[in-house]
Design a protein around this nucleic acid. Sequence first.
RNA 1: GGGGGCGUAGCUCAGUUGGAUAGAGCAUCAGCCUUCUAAGCUGAGGGUCACAGGUUCGAUCCCUGUCGCCCCUACCA
Length: 650
Amino acid sequence: MFRQIEAGLIRAVEEALGGAAAIKVTLEQPKQSSFGELAIPVAFQLARQLKRAPKAIAEDLVSRMPKVEGVAGYEIAGNGYINVRLDRGAYAASLVRGAEEQPGTSADKVIVEHTNINPNKAAHIGHLRNAILGDTFVRMLRRSGRQVEVQNYIDNTGVQVADVVVGFYFLEKKTPAEVEALIDDVSIRFDYLCWDLYARTSSYYRENPNAIEWRNETLHAIEAGAGNLAEIGRVVAEAIVGAHLRTMYRLGIVYDVLPRESEILHLNFWAAAFELLKERGAIYLESAGKNSGCWVMPSSAFRDSSGHDEEDSKVIVRSNGTVTYVGKDIAYQLWKFGLLGRDFYYRPWSRYPDGHLVWVTTDRGGDHKMPRFGAASSVYNVIDSRQSYLQDVVVAGMRALGFERQAEASIHFSYEMVALTPRTCVELGIELPEEDRRRAFVEVSGRKGLGVKADDLIDKLIETALVEVEHRHAEAAPAERRRVAEQIAMGALRYFMLKFTRNSVIAFDFQEALSFEGETGPYVQYAAVRAANILRKFVERGEDLPAFESALTRDVLERWFETEALWQLLLLASKSRGAIERAIAAGEPAHVAKYAFQLAQAFNIFYHEHAVIAEPDAEKRSVLLWLTQYVRAQLLSTLDVLGIEQPEYM
RNA sequence: GGGGGCGUAGCUCAGUUGGAUAGAGCAUCAGCCUUCUAAGCUGAGGGUCACAGGUUCGAUCCCUGUCGCCCCUACCA
């Protein structure tokens, strides 16, 4: 509704201008609500061109603008603003009728790749930020009508998996069968065990540099796909991927397909990409300097400024003939756009409780009915900002191959890392060197085993929430209280990861993350619960909700929404779709979180000021009840985009 | 050295693409529960938007420089 009026206003201003001036007409929200619902600052832009006072231009413009549906009038304010006042009665009446615009559906597919955790240890809070950002962005895109495929890339043949295999095989002297026994042992958390083992192997390398040979041997074995080392690698990666998916499912995060590095290798994706890159001159064989004997991409392809020499080129194929990670990534990115000329085979990996299937790539054909994966028109890679250099190289590769449009549609959805505050390190019992203690934050490190495990944090949040739920609802069944605590924990965690904009480093602090007050997920959930309570209590008292459409005529609505506070609440609630669209355009899920908080805050004030059920005036009560219902619906749909549920009670 | 990001209230952060009197949460202090649940609400204090120039009707936002912090800059991923 609101966005239709905005579009109408822009058209009207353009018509009034009659093409006299070449400027882009924009609208803004007035600083103060008393100035109206919208403001048109166009007179300022025109003042210079026309050499006239902004105020006179504004007056002239208003007199020439055609009638806009839903607008009650204009005011010239300040020294040239055109403030717009909406027809509140008509606006509210259309909302009562449920006349909200539906998003169009698009045929183009968007791929969002997120999570991408090395399958060699338990997930940590940095991975949570990635997955929550990615999952929320997926929900935003789907809400806005876009078709989205969610990929979680599994690097099951890399150094990190190899290091855990080295730990099991060379340090612990375990056979594949013994590793499998550990996985099957329900008294052991295998992903936690690997967390420690990975740190132990890393420190072993530091003390015994020659042991790095074990890693090389393991990497070769994994790539060849035969022998005990490869077998351990396979079972470890398989088990850890399962653990990651379970961890993420606790937060409502699901995937469509798991493309694996092993298939990229076995199906020779790289060979296809290599041919293309050579053929189109995107890479060349270096004959001199430190990169002699390597196939490299010149730095001019991905760095625009001068001052670089041959030494800055990026190695794509090493002098020993093996391909680097970036090379494989170029092949993978080509596949995502359907440009590689080959595809994976697939088999079902697992099924979520709601029936949704996750597929995994395989290197052999099977007899499965499945969706067509890949071949998208745009691709979002949710990867932390430290890898932006490599992402630039991938995009440069696409461009050098002549895939300009796809290069343009390859979006590095980057975000800053989650670090730990020194205080939190102390709480975790981590010894910090003197210089780290004075820093604002300390980077997590898997190699050092330094970090907060995702499941530990989720457990701690549930535990904290449960104490409060038990205190408030002693009469409820334990299983039910547990469920409510889980929903609150999930709301707190998802909101916490989303409230920061992407390029801000999160200095993780337990005290802050465990807070359920103020700008938090539970605050928003609480507002939704309150709204639900009003409606439930009203019905429990034996009264039926009024027939809003007939009771709330335009005149009635016009009268009650003269009250500024009620009108502002309605207006804000009606802007949820616009808030999501703006957040998509900005690529910033934090904006949706902020909107949800603001709406919850506005409702809490309303809740405090109006006793809805006890309202003696029947007409006013109908308005308040409808408003409660409407705000609740908008709040719930926004929470749904954030992946947050409303508990039954709090 | 080069590339990128950041610097806004005591702390943690927003700031809708250059607009009207710069906001929120936390923390501090003072209030509000016989009510649809106080995980809430009201109020107070707290600012040289790092600094210096420039662009223009107008700059927290754009440009230049300076200072400080962070990340990247592997034949690791």
